[in-house]
């Protein structure tokens, strides 16, 4: 199993690498396109601001490559958001893999949402062995609207899509690498897809 974590300069990717290491898998950090396209499984991470992260993807040509990947790809947090059509954060276009827009939470709730919230309406093999209303750790100010591609939803101000799937592409708003044993199970499920 060759697992690559796309390293395009966005965020704390060490935690993801360590989480896989705890599962006994050595993940390679890479921004090298041949290395990414030939991997068995790919993690697309991201923490930070959407428009500058998109800019970094464009500079490396990854914005063209990522939507063409055919192996399982898991976007985490901002990674998931960038896989969507667009984001209100910095008014940027996304990679257009998921047909949904990223919006900002209103001032009626504390922003960012920070902490453990539950996921429900679970619909994918990614959540094998995960019970409805399991808690996941989330830190985010923007969210994907609930949509046809949602494979999990979460309530914060509204019911939004906390995980998405289209074909080989998966995205989770929460941080499985920081979500205790249930999060580890999701990473394990991804490796077994």
């Amino acid at each position: 199993m060759r697992l690559v974590i796309i390293d395009y300069g966005a965020g704390n990717i060490k935690s993801i690498q360590f989480a896989f290491k705890r599962l006994g898998v050595d993940a390679v950090l890479s921004n090298n396109i041949p290395e990414i396209t030939t991997a068995d499984k790919i993690i697309f991470p991201g923490v930070g601001e959407a428009s500058s992260a998109m800019q970094m993807l464009k500079e490396s040509g990854l914005d063209i490559i990522i939507p063409t990947l055919t192996q399982p790809v898991l976007g985490i947090c901002l990674g998931m958001q960038l896989m969507c059509n667009s984001s209100e954060e910095g008014n940027t276009k996304g990679l257009g893999i998921f047909d949904v827009a990223i919006k900002k939470f209103s001032k009626r709730v504390k922003v960012p949402q920070m902490g453990w919230n539950d996921i429900y309406n679970l619909k994918s093999d990614l959540f094998k062995g995960i019970k409805e209303r399991e808690f996941m750790y989330l830190v985010h100010s923007f969210y994907a609207e609930n949509c046809k591609e949602a494979i999990a939803t979460t309530d914060y101000e509204i019911e939004y899509a906390s995980a998405l799937q289209r074909d080989n592409f998966y995205g989770v708003q929460f941080h499985p690498e920081k979500s205790s044993k249930a999060g580890e199970q999701i990473l394990k499920n991804f490796l077994e897809l």
Binding site: R22, Y137, V139, E177, S180, K181
Partner: peptide, 8 residues
């Protein structure tokens, strides 16, 4: 800590 702990 980051290597061994699975919470933030």
């Amino acid at each position: 800590v980051a290597q061994q702990v699975n919470i933030p």
